[in-house]
Computed example of a mutant assay.
Amino acid sequence: MKFLKVFIVVLIINFGALGIGTLLMGEGARSPWYLGLEKAPWTPDGWVFGAAWTFLMICFSVYMTFLYLKRPTNKIVSLFIIQFLLNVSWNFLFFNQKLIDVALLSILLLTIIVTAFFITYFKDLKGKSIFILPYVVWLCIATSLNLYVSLYN
């Protein structure tokens, strides 16, 4: 029962981040500005982003629940909050403000934080660490997409 309570709270926070990010991105991927950008050849179709983020936030919520129950420390909570802020800010920086290079820095920091979760707490969670791997992989792909836009626009 304790797992379920923490999981629901973390899930609400993570999906809240997605909602806030969506609100802050303006027209987003449908904007004339974005449609006019030179994008990486490996850029997925638009629908993939919504499906991917839904899956990622469910997996990350499971991971964070296991981690928090194992180590309920201020450090874990602080890193989670930083991850939340970086996740939300990327949409605003990239789509709303069109600050491609600043957004790249934001997503690089996000990738570092999420990868640090995986590496730092692997010994604590062992096989349960698999739940954060999709997020790490996706952030590497997303970072490469942002880097491509940064280099070619």
Rank of each mutant, 00 (worst) to 15 (best):
I20R: 08
P32M: 10
P44L: 04
F118R: 06
V77R: 13
Y148I: 05
I130L: 13
I12Q: 02
I12K: 00
A17C: 13
F117I: 01
G50A: 13
N146K: 02
T22E: 07
F122C: 04
P72S: 12
F122N: 02
K39P: 00
W42Y: 14
K70Y: 14
Y152D: 05
L105V: 15
L24S: 03
Y68E: 08
L109M: 15
T115M: 12
A103G: 11
K98H: 15
K70E: 15
A116Y: 15
V102L: 14
S144A: 11
T143Y: 11
L145C: 06
F7L: 08
S61P: 09
N74K: 12
N91T: 15
T120Y: 12
L139N: 05
A142M: 12
V9C: 04
F92L: 14
E38M: 06
Y34G: 05
P44Y: 10
F80H: 07
F3Q: 03
C59H: 03
K126C: 06
D45L: 12
F122T: 03
F49A: 08
L108K: 04
L145Q: 02
L147E: 01
K128H: 01
W53T: 11
L86K: 01
T22F: 06
D45P: 09
L151H: 06
G36N: 12
I107A: 05
F117A: 01
F131Y: 07
I141K: 04
N153I: 11
A17H: 03
S31N: 01
K98A: 11
I132C: 07
V114R: 00
I130D: 05
G16Y: 01
Y63Q: 11
F3M: 05
L67V: 01
I81Q: 00
F80R: 03
I58W: 10
T65V: 07
F122Y: 15
W47P: 04
I81D: 01
G19Q: 03
V102M: 13
